[in-house]
Nucleic acid binder design. Sequence first.
RNA 1: GGGAGCGUGACGGAGUAGUCAAACGUACCUGACUGUAAAUCAGGCGGCCGAUGGCCUACGUAGGUGCAAAUCCUACCGCUCCCA
Length: 399
Amino acid sequence: MKNFEIIKKDKKSQARLGILRTPHGIVNTPSYVFVGTYGRFLHLSPKDLKSTGAQLIIANTFHLWEKALKNKLKEGLIHKSFGLKIPVMTDSGGFQVLSLAFGDKNKVGKFMVGDSKADESYKRSKIKITSKGVHFDFKGKKVFLGPELSMNLQRQIGADIIFAFDHITSPLDDFEYNKKAVELTDAWAKICLKAHVRNQLNKKNKQILFGIVQGGLFPELRKQSAQSIGAMGFDGFGIGGSYTKKQISQILKWIIPYLPEEKPRHLLGVGKVEDILEAIDNGVDTFDCVIPTREARHGRLYTKKGHMDIRKGRYVSDQSVIEKGCKCPTCSQKISRSEIRALIKSEDRDINAAGQRWCLMHNMWFFNDLLENIRAALSRGTYQSFKKKCLKDFESNKA
RNA sequence: GGGAGCGUGACGGAGUAGUCAAACGUACCUGACUGUAAAUCAGGCGGCCGAUGGCCUACGUAGGUGCAAAUCCUACCGCUCCCA
């Protein structure tokens, strides 16, 4: 049976409704993927996680590995770690080369604000990239990560869907550098595929491997990368890179036509409300993002009419629920804004954690519900009007 | 009745003559957060202005010394502790 099946396509866009089959269950797509980097969600029990309705979650190979380095990675640890038998992904660790090795130093992250020009002082001074992988400093130690190692680690970790080890570039990198990065990502992709075939040889439930498209902000490189990675026989595709916000849908338009229609597409690290609507419109099936969880921990709560910062003084004695009519675990239990605020403002770590837990469950449920509504709209053939209304409501900011 | 000490911005709490509109913390206000080194971070927080500078009002109250005081002196008010 195929891993992925398209059930319905939107007539006015690239959006599609599908089913993704994994060893630990099916995922209805489009779907949000929540990030539990270290194999857990801070402050949430497995039962809590389940109550959010999450279909698919993702952990990080580099961080799991780095954390478990003292001992040894245990076989198939990831589902035990999350404490739940649900579909799980692991990212390859390629992004950490950008975010850890030089992201901080050069103030380069996933997103750039405005249109940045190449910075003369920008250099990859603390990182050495070879055909085998990347050497860089982490917490004062020399570390190495590459395609072969990432594949082996991901096999041990045991997620349902794993990613090839790629080379992400920064918005400050020029065409030449991006060209090399695409070539390197291609070369590594081949190594990953080979290792993957070997690793999965006698396994009953084979892991699903996604290759990753790069190419920076250059249409010809994006096309080249999509064609090349797209032809390699991966089970699905990740779309990577770092860019300015406005460039997401542009990049997708460059890539999507060259990726095999029948295979799933995952947009790496994008997940604001307006961005996911746009991504789905352009043919993306899944996407992971820290936004729902990180922002929940920081007190930002989502509603259909925008988001609110529950820590603000105006909620001190607000006895209403986060969003009227919301069926999330938090609102269902009638936990008031006032109570959540009091908890999350507490300096006591346990009390504070209890507040964060309510926020986490609400936000995760919110995004799952949003995706469920998107799927329903796709099913009915009303995605375009749904998208329009959803954005209008959300941007009204009357939370 | 006698002795000792203390009174600082919304609160806690530094400062004890000039670099003080006053450290720091909290509260409060704004804003960030997009393949998580993020239960985090940044800015503001007396008033006014023609504002990377200027003016006014401020450190219990009222006076005083001094070029200059939240910082020294006197009195008063209030609070705390000790002895009777």
